[in-house]
Design a protein around this nucleic acid. Structure first.
Lengths: 208, 208
DNA sequence: CCCGGACGATACCGCTCGGTATCGTCCGGG
DNA sequence: CCCGGACGATACCGAGCGGTATCGTCCGGG
């Protein structure tokens, strides 16, 4: 894994833009957008405020770019799940549910970046909001497609229910009101996916 | 509805503390906690910063008091629903679901105050966080009790599922990824409540 | 009647914020 | 070789923040 390009000075160090985005990702996720100043991001990225403003027009643009990366990660997870279970939409849906539940411990004391960012950005004209809304809409579209392919009687309703459960699970994990969130989520989604028929193995109810 | 105590000067005007809390409620809800300054609250309450600091030690204390009031409103809604359907836990649960769905339009462009506040207050030691977590825990306890009284086979799981759906519905309303959220929520909760037996009227499935 | 406490107005404090200006340096491609 | 652009460091700006101090006023209960 030696650097393919150059060796800036000592240890292999990413170019400033990458370091800035890495620092922003960690700080925005853990501390929130508005609590983190540009100066703090610069320090953690081992650079300066000036360098940040050379790569991003404003702080808001940096926020939007960060969310664009996070959204791309989620899309990649969808892609991976689809590729792992080709032609098996039920397995794909369960894979997504597993992807979310596996991420729950990491956000146990800080929530989903999209939910949190929406809370911190009340103005609808903020560039980051567009990123979030487009991402969520596309995610819903893919989920509806999977539910339809799985033969669920009402794909739109099933996708809505799954979305509610996954989003709600993240919220409830954050506020600690419910225990064993991951297990409960998986059981619920199993129940939804197994709805299409009383096929063997799908007989377990949501409370089994 | 004449004022029972005194008449401060001209039009009937609430005492400063109430005006401050009213202003804080509206501003915190619509703009977010961190975006709203104490000065702004004072202006909207038709008073001054000094008056605010005479009634509240810090801004954080005001935030906590606001959330305490919001939590009390939710508790009151639970009480009312219980009183309206005594001895009918299934109806009570549906009443709560209806209470949430009826509130969805009001939060369509701004989310649930608890979810938003958690996002804006990353430090676990913040006084407002304790208010939120206690409220959510108590709400879960009451919901589990209702599910048990309704004869659901696994009250904890059913309460978790309902909680996920209601929280997720608020999130999805805020980010606009799903349409007809209210109707979908009611159908889902009906399905959960009707789970206890294939009694007449409960035969409709979640996608019916 | 009158006095004390709540209230309104205003100015102020130290701090941090997002964003800009300036200047020296360093490094790689033409 | 050398030159231009990216980079680092630092100082700065205006604005807003949470919170405090001071003073005049107003009003109701003892």
């Amino acid at each position: 894994m030696a650097p393919t390009v150059s060796r800036p000075s000592r240890v292999a160090k990413l170019p400033p833009r990458e370091r800035i985005l890495d620092a922003a990702e960690e700080l925005f996720q853990n501390e929130g957008i508005r609590r983190v100043g540009v100066q703090t991001i610069a320090e953690r990225a081992e650079t300066t405020k000036m360098a940040i403003y050379r790569h991003f027009e404003t702080k808001d643009a940096l926020v939007a770019e960060w969310l664009r990366i996070v959204a791309a990660d989620y899309q990649a997870a969808f892609d991976r799940v689809e590729a792992e279970h080709p032609g098996r939409p039920g397995e794909q849906i369960m894979g997504i549910a597993r992807f979310i539940t596996e991420g729950l411990p990491a956000i146990s004391y800080r929530g989903c970046p999209f939910i949190n960012s929406l809370a911190e950005l009340p103005d609808r004209s903020h560039p980051a909001r567009q990123v979030i809304e487009e991402h969520k809409a596309q995610q819903t579209r893919r989920l509806v497609g999977m539910c339809a392919a799985a033969g669920l009687p009402d794909p739109g309703q099933a996708a809505a229910e799954i979305t509610f459960v996954l989003e709600g699970a993240q919220v409830s994990t954050q506020n600690g009101s419910i225990d064993q969130v991951g297990d409960r989520v998986l059981r619920i989604v199993e129940g939804i996916v197994g709805q299409h028929r009383a096929s063997p193995g799908a007989a377990r109810t949501v409370s089994g």
